[in-house]
Structure formats: structure tokens, C-alpha cells
Design a protein around this nucleic acid. Structure first.
Lengths: 189, 189
DNA sequence: AGTTTTCTAACGAACGTCCGTTATTGTAAC
DNA sequence: GTTACAATAACGGACGTTCGTTAGAAAACT
């Protein structure tokens, strides 16, 4: 039981890394198995298909990041501060929280069973940011939808260029992103 | 000769659409051929390999978008206005300029020959924005690198959610993106 | 306690399918 | 009749998946 869950978990981790590094199609079951130190057929004891493996990776990743962001939001006061805290947690997970979250950023081929579920999970998670932005006091001509997508775009794009020990730390990045928007969009007190 | 170039061009267009819609791996030569109305093997008269086809799509796309942005920049005065004009042209091409540019946004598998060339082409193009941002007069604590990546991220991420007849027009999007940053980062005159 | 049965976790081998690619042949135009 | 282009047919290999089997642990029964 415990051993089984450990193995399943390890398999999930390895699969996430492969999906991230190679993309879904190029991440073959043979590669995943090899990286996990088992034979290809043995994967099917833990997951019924490659598609199910991908869905499981997404479920795990989005569950974790949702919890991390919610935890980071506790006891933070002020609408802009809350947005920045959420961004920091988001970037922390995406850039330094393991390969799970980078795998989520990759393209999901149209033939994957469970594609709609994956999209739904993504949408559910992003609703956190819609709520945080809804709480901001903004000038009436500012479009909140565009603002949310702009911020999420800036954040999610980081995984294409950010490298450890090179770019700014995730928290610094979050500060800069939010600050670049904050002082100009915030209403004069 | 002319006929050949037409056919080659059509093939390129079809391939770009397939690469965008399915991703590189799932876009099989058989699918591309079918969509182009020819037999699979006939593609190899025009392109020596699938990898070469992908590289050609990237070359064409990045050449076109570079020209479009440069053209949009002619006769535009004012540093922020120039940045906005470049963003509008970039988004116009990405969102309504055909599938070429969306194909460029997709993941390039690590086994693709010419991968480095593709990355170099992308980097060369993005240098336009580095130059435009270098021209801005900003408060000294504003990091120009972060600003560039933030703006490019916001723009390039649009292709994951923007749909025709739904989201704001590309030019409107460009205006909002730049405006969200402009008034707060610009130095008081 | 000892025996029988069931479950866990993995194995090697194979299946049918699809992949990118090639050698060869056909055909239309100049 | 050569050249430009496209079609036929096939190749070797990789893919996801399924199969039958097995060693060992756990559970159930006697």
C-alpha cells in the first residue's frame, strides 16, 4: 500500500519530467519506464493508459499549486498585496517547484482522452486570479479580463526563458510584474 | 518554376496549420500531404525532411512578422507610441495573420535538426522589442529586461486563449497592454 | 500453525498500427 | 526527350498497448 503509493508517486514525478522535457508525444512510455527504473509494461499496473498518466500529472500539479497559492494568501491584507503574494506563489511553484507545473504548460494533443478535464482544471485554478483582480479598485476604463490574461501570460511565459541561477528569483519577478501594473492602475487614494 | 513555388508555398501554409493545430509530432507527413492534396512521398520533392519543413515554416513566419513590425514602425514618433505600434503589429500577425505565427509558438521537440537555428531566429526577432524598450525613458529602478519579457509573455500567451470574434481586437489588446504599463512607468514630464 | 488462496507488482514477448523516409515508376510540359 | 513534378509501393523502426506468467507478500481457511 505505502510502497505502492510511493512507486505510483515516483512514476508520476518521472512522467511529469518527461512530459515537460520532451512534450507529450515524444515522451514515450519506454522513456518514462526507463527513467523510472521499470519495464514499459509495468506502468500499466499503476495507470491504465498514457493519457491517464498525463491527466494524473495535471491533477496533481494543479491541486498542489492551488493549495500553495491559497496558503500564501492567508493573513495577507490589501488587495494589491494579495495579488502579489499569489503571483509570487504561482511563480515559485512554476519555476522552482519541480517539473510538475512546467508539464502543465505544455501543449496537450487533441487526441488525448481527458483533454477537456485538463482544460477545466486549468480554468478552475485561474479563477483564483480573476477573484483577486475583481477585488482591486481600478479606474472604470481598465478592463479586468485583459489585465488578468496579461498578468497570467507574463507569468506563464516565464517558463520558456527562466533558468535557475540566472533570471531574477520568482518573488522578485512577482514584485516587478505587479509593481509595473500597480502604481499606474491603482486609483489615487 | 512559378508553379513549383506556388505549390511549395501552399505546402508550407498547410504544414504551418498542421504544426499549429496538432503540434510537431502529431502533425504527420501523411496528414500534411492529405491536407495539401498530394501523396506523402511527393512532399520530399519540395522539402528534404520533416525537420526542414518545420524550419522553413519558422523562417517564413519570422521573416514576415519582422517585416510587418518594421513597416508598422515607419513614421511613428514617440517611444511609447512606437512600442504600442510594434505590439499591435505583433498581435495582428499572431492572432489574425494566419497560422504561420501560431506554429512558431509551439514546442519544438529536442530531436529536431535545426532547433538551434529556430531559436536563433526567434531571438533575433525579439531584439526589436529590446531596442524599443531601451529607448524608453524609465525610472532607474525599472528593470528593462523584465519589462520586455513581461510584455512579450503577455502578448505571446494570447494565442492560447484568443479566439476570433470573441476577444478584443489585436490593436485594442496592444493598446491596453501598453497603457497598463505606460502611465505608471513613464517619468513625469 | 500450517495450508491454500488471493493480491501486488512486475516481467518479457509480442501485436497491430503508424511513423518518416526512399527507390522506382509514371506523366505532363516545354 | 529531357526536365519538373507527382504517384506507387515498400522499408525499417518506434509507438502504445495487451498478453500470459511469475515471485513474493498478505489474507483466509482448516
Amino acid at each position: 500500500m505505502t510502497n505502492s503509493n510511493n512507486r505510483r508517486q515516483q512514476l508520476l514525478e518521472v512522467a511529469a519530467t518527461c512530459f515537460y522535457r520532451e512534450g507529450y508525444d515524444a515522451a514515450s512510455m519506454r522513456l518514462i519506464a526507463e527513467q523510472a527504473g521499470m519495464r514499459t509494461a509495468s506502468i500499466y499496473y499503476h495507470f491504465e493508459s498514457k493519457d491517464a498518466l498525463l491527466v494524473a500529472v495535471h491533477e496533481e500539479a494543479l491541486h498542489r499549486i492551488q493549495e500553495a497559492v491559497n496558503a500564501a494568501l492567508m493573513d495577507v491584507k490589501g488587495e494589491w498585496n494579495r495579488l502579489e503574494a499569489a503571483c509570487a506563489a504561482h511563480l515559485e511553484m512554476l519555476l522552482t517547484g519541480g517539473t510538475f507545473f512546467k508539464a502543465v504548460m505544455r501543449h496537450v494533443p487533441s487526441a488525448v482522452e481527458g483533454r477537456e478535464l485538463i482544460f477545466k482544471l486549468r480554468d478552475d485554478y485561474e479563477r483564483i486570479f480573476a477573484d483577486l483582480i475583481a477585488d482591486l479598485e481600478l479606474s472604470p476604463e481598465t478592463d479586468r479580463g485583459t489585465l488578468r490574461l496579461m498578468l497570467l501570460g507574463a507569468m506563464n511565459w516565464t517558463f520558456t526563458w527562466w533558468r535557475p541561477h540566472e533570471g531574477p528569483a520568482p518573488a522578485v519577478l512577482a514584485f516587478r510584474f505587479v509593481t509595473n501594473l500597480r502604481s499606474c492602475l491603482d486609483l489615487p487614494a
